[in-house]
């Protein structure tokens, strides 16, 4: 399952279409859209609101180990040489309020260049200037500005491993060029910029989902056999854990133990142990035989 968050409907619209997502009315406090393999949440603007919405979303729909999370949206960039519509993956998210930085994992090869981003409490205006005067300024990638990323990261990280979180931002303005446009024109532009990259983003993440392998686990046949043995030997919780560890060890090492163990335990499997002591004796014999 792919979890997506976007602040505004205009940012989400291309994903709703591409992934055929439908509004889920039962999720009452926030706008949620569901599909077969994806869910999209509208967080509204602002880091606090985004964190609250994301947290509620992930608590209601707890992610699994193989799920991915994409935070998508637009951002301002003060560097005029970077054209509007340019897409970036974030390597650093700075919370302007606290000054704290977080670093999304950059494990997967990405079709987008990297950028840093500062989450600010208000829309960046033309009066804003880059605060970074450090002597290494020339070697760092562009800085973008948005109003949600730091909140989304903090809300999402308890539910995922670092490498499951992806942050993509598309430059919507240079903090000056949107002021002359009407609100409906701005909305159209935002959707247009995101649309240009939607297919690439989806293809990229689907490829990640496809190639992230789920860890090998005991199959139903082995679990069923383990449960039969536990019952037959009247094992305590601690002894059950010991048996499960042994079966997992044999299974992961491709040791064909099933028929051998079934034969070894033919008596108690036919007529279960009367006491726990008797069961423990068999468990000890199993350890001697199979380890």
């Amino acid at each position: 399952m792919l979890y997506i968050t976007a602040a505004l409907y205009e940012e989400a619209a291309p994903f709703l279409t591409a992934l055929s997502l439908k509004k889920e009315p039962s999720f009452r406090h926030f706008d949620l859209f569901l599909g077969d393999n994806a869910m999209l949440l509208l967080t509204k603007t602002g880091a606090m609101r985004a964190a609250v919405a994301t947290s509620s979303f992930l608590t209601t729909f707890p992610p699994q180990k193989n799920d991915m999370f994409l935070s998508v949206g637009t951002a301002a960039c003060l560097n005029q040489s970077i054209p509007c519509g340019s897409a970036f993956i974030l390597q650093q998210i700075i919370d302007a309020g606290s000054g704290r930085s977080v670093y999304p994992e950059l494990i997967y090869r990405s079709p987008f260049p990297e950028a840093r981003l500062t989450t600010v409490p208000q829309i960046i205006t033309s009066a804003a200037t880059e605060q970074n005067n450090a002597s290494y300024k020339h070697i760092v990638p562009p800085m973008l500005y948005d109003m949600e990323s730091s909140g989304i990261y903090e809300a999402a990280i308890p539910y995922f491993l670092c490498e499951q979180l992806l942050f993509c931002r598309i430059v919507s303005d240079h903090a000056v060029d949107l002021t002359s446009l009407s609100y409906s024109e701005i909305r159209k532009k935002v959707t247009l910029y995101i649309t240009e990259h939607t297919e690439t983003m989806i293809r990229w993440i689907q490829n990640i989902e496809k190639n992230r392998k789920a860890p090998k686990q005991l199959s139903e046949k082995h679990i069923e056999f383990y449960e039969r043995v536990c019952a037959a030997l009247r094992l305590s919780t601690a002894s059950q854990a010991e048996l499960k560890r042994m079966i997992l060890y044999l299974y992961l090492n491709n040791i064909d133990y099933l028929s051998d163990m079934e034969h070894f335990l033919s008596l108690p499997l036919l007529s279960p142990c009367k006491t726990k002591k008797e069961g423990l004796f068999y468990l000890g014999q199993l350890k001697k035989h199979f380890l």
Binding site: E105, P158, E163
Partner: peptide, 9 residues
């Protein structure tokens, strides 16, 4: 960082 995946890293 919290929640890192050692084997994927």
């Amino acid at each position: 960082r919290t929640h890192q995946n050692f084997s994927i890293q």
